[in-house]
């Protein structure tokens, strides 16, 4: 009789039958283990949550008073003989890869990850396993990131230049992770950093969680055009083009995203400047991470799953596409930003 796999994909999420728990389930379940606080991975409605300590406040902020247990990297919990351990994923603060072990068989669920050390989250750490469940948001060889120091040099130069032109710089990036990464790498000798409400709320949650962030000012109805002039505003992509931006005029709009690697994508978002900055691994990052796990089997949850699994098969892996509901961070973010109408 064929052995039941330790983890399987069902209609609710990634399920461990032996331990009777789910990882990043997209439908309400009894027992959920969460890789990170992004809305496509941490959904509302589960009876119990287990997540990394640094995800605590963001989960409370986003999901309300849930029943949450947290643990650190390297710590373990045992559920019906199945051992669960967290390892850093380097994606956003609190993001964890989840190692699941039972009778010598090891699976790792990566959640989202990046291999570059961004200076604000604990750097990605490869974990040896038999089966690796990986994202591949940027699983095409055209996606290759520059070191972040170079990207931020470009961003700071751009800000300085816009300031010289008497303009406000507006930088769009995801509210959780990207926004703080930007904040911590801006050159504060140039000017002040203002935030959109959605970003401000994420910042506050992270600060309550003990993460230190550079000072920012929330934009309110009272904020004047003059205060903003020459300074920089961090906002979620969904705020671009809304009446909220009127105060920033004249402004230049930069978009921070891995998608900006392609000229056409930048054009479609009508950005003045595209900065290629992603919290996901690029092509080389994905391949090196997978190699480092020394796994035999790879399941691909979201991104260019078809192309990437074909490529992995050609280089000798048992690679499979898995149907999941991950990967729409941006749409969820648009929901969050609604109602922000200052």
């Amino acid at each position: 009789m064929a052995k039941k796999p330790l983890l399987e994909f069902n209609q609710n999420g990634i399920y461990c039958a032996q331990g009777d728990f789910y990882i990043d389930p997209w439908r309400p379940v009894k027992d959920a283990v969460i890789t990170h606080g992004h809305s496509d991975h941490a959904k509302w409605g589960h009876q119990k949550y287990l997540a990394h300590t640094l995800s605590r406040e963001i989960l409370y902020h986003r999901l309300g008073q849930i029943s949450l247990e947290t643990m650190d990297y390297g710590e373990s919990r045992i559920k019906n003989g199945v051992k669960i351990t967290f390892y850093p994923a380097g994606h956003i603060p609190g993001s964890a890869q989840i190692k699941v072990e039972y009778q010598g068989e090891i699976w790792v669920v990566s959640g989202d990850y990046k291999t570059e050390d961004d200076g604000i989250c604990t750097p990605f750490e490869p974990v040896k396993c038999h089966s690796f469940i990986s994202e591949c948001t940027f699983g095409m060889p055209v996606y290759k990131w520059q070191p972040q120091a170079e990207v931020f040099k470009g961003i700071n130069e751009w800000w300085q230049q816009k300031q010289n032109e008497g303009k406000t710089s507006v930088l769009a990036g995801y509210s959780l992770g990207k926004a703080q990464r930007i904040l911590q790498n801006l050159d504060l000798n140039i000017g002040k950093v203002f935030t959109h409400g959605v970003i401000h709320n994420s910042n506050e949650a992270l600060i309550r969680n003990g993460i230190e962030l550079n000072p920012t000012t929330l934009i309110t109805v009272l904020t004047t055009k003059e205060e903003l002039k020459g300074n920089i505003v961090i906002c979620p992509p969904s705020a671009i083009g809304t009446p909220w931006m009127r105060k920033m005029n004249p402004y230049s709009f930069g978009y921070c995203s891995g998608w900006m690697a392609i000229r056409g994508a930048k054009r479609r978002r009508a950005a003045d400047r595209g900065f290629v900055l992603s919290d996901h691994a690029d092509w080389d990052g994905l391949i090196s991470a997978i190699k480092a796990t020394e796994c035999d089997t790879v399941y691909l949850t979201h991104g260019y799953t078809a192309s990437f699994s074909r490529y992995l098969s050609e280089i000798g892996y048992d690679a499979r596409e898995a149907k999941t509901l991950y990967g729409n961070e941006e749409e969820n973010e648009a929901e969050e930003a609604k109602g922000e109408n200052l």
Binding site: M140, P141, V142, I262, R263, Y304, S307, R310, Y311
Partner: peptide, 15 residues
């Protein structure tokens, strides 16, 4: 990279 992956990359980039 193999030819098929080039073709798919080209579809993504468009140029």
């Amino acid at each position: 990279i193999p030819d098929w992956l080039f073709r798919e990359s080209y579809e993504v980039v468009g140029d």
